[in-house]
Every structure is written in C-alpha cells, then in structure tokens.
Amino acid sequence: MFEARLTEGSLLKKIIEAIKDLVQEANVDCSEEGLTMQAMDASHVSLCSLNMRHGGFDHYRCDRSISLGLNLANLGKILKCAGNDDVVTLKAEDEPDTLTLMFESPNQERISDFELKLMDIETEHLGIPNEEYKCTISMPSGEFQRIVRDLAVIGETCIITCTKEGVKFSVSGDLGNGNVTVRQSSAADGDEKDQVKIQMEEPVTLNFALRYLGFFTKATPLGSTVKLHMSPDVPIVVEYPIDGIGSISYFLAPKIDE
C-alpha cells in the first residue's frame, strides 16, 4: 500500500507543469524514503531528477517500494481538476495498474477521486556522479527565467561564463548579439532570496541550448531561488529547491565546438 498526502496540493500541479513539456513518460519510484523520478528528454540531451522526501508530506506510507509508470501529460490533465487550495492524496496498491488521486477542498465540502492508468515504461537509469562543482551560482529564479526568455529571442545558444565578479550570459544570432551580466550581491543588499551568490574555485565557460534552459524555467513557480552548478566539460545542473520537501534538478549536456 502506498499513500501520500499533500496539504498544499498545488505543489504537485507545479511539479508536473515543470516536467511535462520536457519528459512525456516517466517512472516515479516510491519507497520508504519518499518519491524520486529520473527521466531523460526524448533527445537524450537533458535529464530531470525529482526528489520528494517522505517527511515533506503530511502523511506518507509506503509498505513496499513500487514504480509508477506515468504519462505526465495525462497526469497533468487530472491535476487540472484539483482546486489550487485542495489537499491532494495519492494512493496505489502494491502491484498497481492505476494511481488514485483524491482531491479535497479545504472545507471538505467537495471530494473528488480520479484513477489514472499506469504504463510499463522501460527506462535507462543513469548514475549521476557525486561531483564537486567548480562554480555554484545561487540567484533569484525569476531573474534566471527572464534572462533565458530574453536571450532566446536573439539566438539558440547561450554562453554562460562564471567568474568571481559575476555570471555573464551571452548570445549571438542573425539579428545581432547580447550579453546579460548579473553581479554578486553585497551582503547589505535586501532579502536573502533576491541575492546573487557565487561560490567559485575556478572560472568556467560553457555553451548551452537556450531551448532546454527554457524548459527548465517552467519550474520557476516552485521557489524563489535557482542554483546553477557548473564545471568544465560536464553538464550544468539547474537546481530548484522545493521548500521543505526536496528539489527538481535538471542536467543539460553542453554544446561543444567542433
């Protein structure tokens, strides 16, 4: 028996919105520790990894580890039937064919339940090395979203350069080129969540497809901060912490000069 209850049901809506344009089908693995999901996009350029700890749920029970093969677009359709303030409960048997979703309005006046058919999905599970990154940038997620959106109008590839002074996002295209530099905040600058912080061992420059960075920014509503982890010649990690429960991390392979 698997049962997981989230008072803030809208969180689940936001998580699926953040993944479903990149990944069509995925296995969500449920264990005593919580929910995890790892999936590549259809072109195998990027990888999305979701982690939700059991302690972040209001109620969590998982007697036996199970894998839920989900069509994320269809799950998104069902979650659209939940109100933004609804409590959402997920339920499945030990050898499930379906996932039951129950939505309760805050005053308990409306209770609905839906069953989503599960799928057998064969996926390749990749081992992600525990890497110490040369640069870690923490910045407001809305700022990152704006930069990616603005630069995507000009070209396809973004050059991200991280130095001690700041992070430079550069793009060039048929109409011209552009750069946006965000500088490290001084300690006196406003709220913690509005700050740009850079931890750097050595400067890093890498090229990335803006199209994929754009997919990742669908996770912006999940939190005020995004973290970018970069080292030379390895995928960037775009990590969105989800307050109190876990995170979504996206890994994107760099573009390499031929």
Partner: peptide
C-alpha cells in the same frame, strides 16, 4: 559552430 552532446555521454547506465 558548436554541436549538442548527449547526456548519456557523461552519466553511465546503472
């Protein structure tokens, strides 16, 4: 001209 690499080039199958 830069070319896109694949994620499986960096992370091995478990």
């Amino acid at each position: 001209m830069s070319s896109q690499t694949s994620i499986s080039r960096y992370f091995r199958s478990k």
